[in-house]
Write a protein that binds this DNA or RNA. Sequence first.
DNA 1: CAGATTTCCGGAAACGTTTGCGGCGCAAAC
DNA 2: GTTTGCGCCGCAAACGTTTCCGGAAATCTG
Lengths: 337, 337
Amino acid sequence: MRVTIHDVARTAGVSVATASRALNHKGEIGPDKRARVLAAAQTLGYAPSSMARALVSGRSRILGVLINNNASPVYAELLRGIEDAANAAGFTLLFSNSADSQEQALHCLATLQSMHVDGLLLTPVQTDRRDIELLQRSSLPFMLLLRHFPDLEADYVIVDNVAGGYLVTSHLLELGHRRIGHLAGPAHTSTAQGRLTGYRQALAERGAPFDQGLLTHADYTIAGGYEGARRLLERSDRPTALFAATDLQAVGVLKAARELGLRIPEDLALAGGDDIELAEFLEVPLTTFRQPAREIGMRGAEILMARLRVGSQALQQVVLKPKLIVRRSSGCRRTFS
Amino acid sequence: MRVTIHDVARTAGVSVATASRALNHKGEIGPDKRARVLAAAQTLGYAPSSMARALVSGRSRILGVLINNNASPVYAELLRGIEDAANAAGFTLLFSNSADSQEQALHCLATLQSMHVDGLLLTPVQTDRRDIELLQRSSLPFMLLLRHFPDLEADYVIVDNVAGGYLVTSHLLELGHRRIGHLAGPAHTSTAQGRLTGYRQALAERGAPFDQGLLTHADYTIAGGYEGARRLLERSDRPTALFAATDLQAVGVLKAARELGLRIPEDLALAGGDDIELAEFLEVPLTTFRQPAREIGMRGAEILMARLRVGSQALQQVVLKPKLIVRRSSGCRRTFS
DNA sequence: CAGATTTCCGGAAACGTTTGCGGCGCAAAC
DNA sequence: GTTTGCGCCGCAAACGTTTCCGGAAATCTG
């Protein structure tokens, strides 16, 4: 069966305590015994049981990850960043998926807790706060990624969604557009709220009217973008430009526009958000703003692990700056009567 | 601190043994005590420690996942499928990333072992076989995904890469092309080998010559595809059609073609492999063959978990059929002199 | 009513570690 | 020659479960 520290101790002719000390380079130990233990461990192929270790030490060196698996490339990038940082620090990742359902999220949280994770990285569902209330009661260190609660005393790493929405909308306004629609994300998410706020700020700042009829909410998917675009573009007074909250939704807009015979950017200027890797290579290269998902994952994991090392410390709320990426989909400067 | 089964037992006024039986619905137990235990567990918010449970039972209900994180959408889809199946069966996922390095993979394997995973799903690196030799020695049930070793007695779920390459190449041949280049993947991977074999089979079957000069290997990335395409397309006798092993590489071809002033499909017919979600929405919608990554993940996880339940059983080697997806990038039928 | 069976429950061992505590031998100090 | 100190090591408890085994009470059998 499994080779334990007892086997190592026996073949080395020492006690388990000595074997443990030799393997962990802890405590005083004679050089000959240390060598014998290490040799025995080597030949037997001994691998310590992290579960047993976790049980007695109280630390598992496992980080829980709970994301709402939008199959979006953004989450893949995010995961990648988390993975890099965790691996570098010798942590392993326990992976769960809330599928954007609070019930599912609560279930996952219970599982992660029972696995004795040392800390947790999550993108909250945000339909309600039962998940974070649970976390706060359990005093498990956690870190919010991508989404946050403005009034919550919790660590987070996000991009400045307001600035992102503002950048993109300002860009469209500068190109001469006055009727700019917004295809927003699910209303309960802080990302959707932020980008919408930025959109309205830009409109207000340049004296463009905000038209409720040019705003619609949709899922963060291609299908969601498609349906939202149909709603917005089939109106008689359709907008001349459209800001989709995410690139994935913008892809749905591309599809809808094709079906409606609208050329992009000639008949409809389009911009998205996130700057996924493929945004540059779409049917029409996409103007967007960059959300550095990988960096968000890395920073989040690093901060969380730092908190685990030193115990409690000041609140860490990181807001990364977005960057405007101009491509063809937003078109050239024009004047509208 | 953490609420244990001892706390539950104490507040319920029973022994730990009884508490355990009540919570697991095992063994005979009086209805009143059962009720008291369940009530106590409820009010205390008791969550059993899976680590302690794993330690004594020998089963952790954790599946290890080791993929070589091509940031490719294919791996995201694969992970998604694994996740769905595992979640449905009450398993949790421990996630690792070999980054296509055998050294890193070996390190990850050691970690996963020490975490007492019940089984392992992996996409092997394939530069050598140290990883699977290690696995075979350790008698940990494992399942190969996407990539396989033809001569190895191990479970796997893959798509028929030979058929995929054959389908795509045949399609290009039917369109009239005679000089079809192939941008293959890393030579050590079974996916690259399979798709290349299918390509050669199709050529041979229709009497088209195989030209070593029209073949090049590149990484499974956009950058890899770009570099490979530059090599192939800057020749004086460049091919009229190009089969890129993966869609991601095909995107790189798109970029190279744009730079070289080649129109697709007029100047160069293009096809890829995998059928990623965005293939339909690229600059030129991509002809490709479908590798059902999500299904591969699901099937793999299900088969592995079945093996864990019933113990040893017959070898499970699943080969899914690919499907040709024709879009604009391969162009229309033509004749070449 | 004595014995046999069943039902229910608690004690304790086991899983594989880490670590506090105490013991042993040996050298230095008095 | 007896103490003191120290370096080295082993015993055993602890972490939170599950489960085997045995005991006590309750029920049944003859």
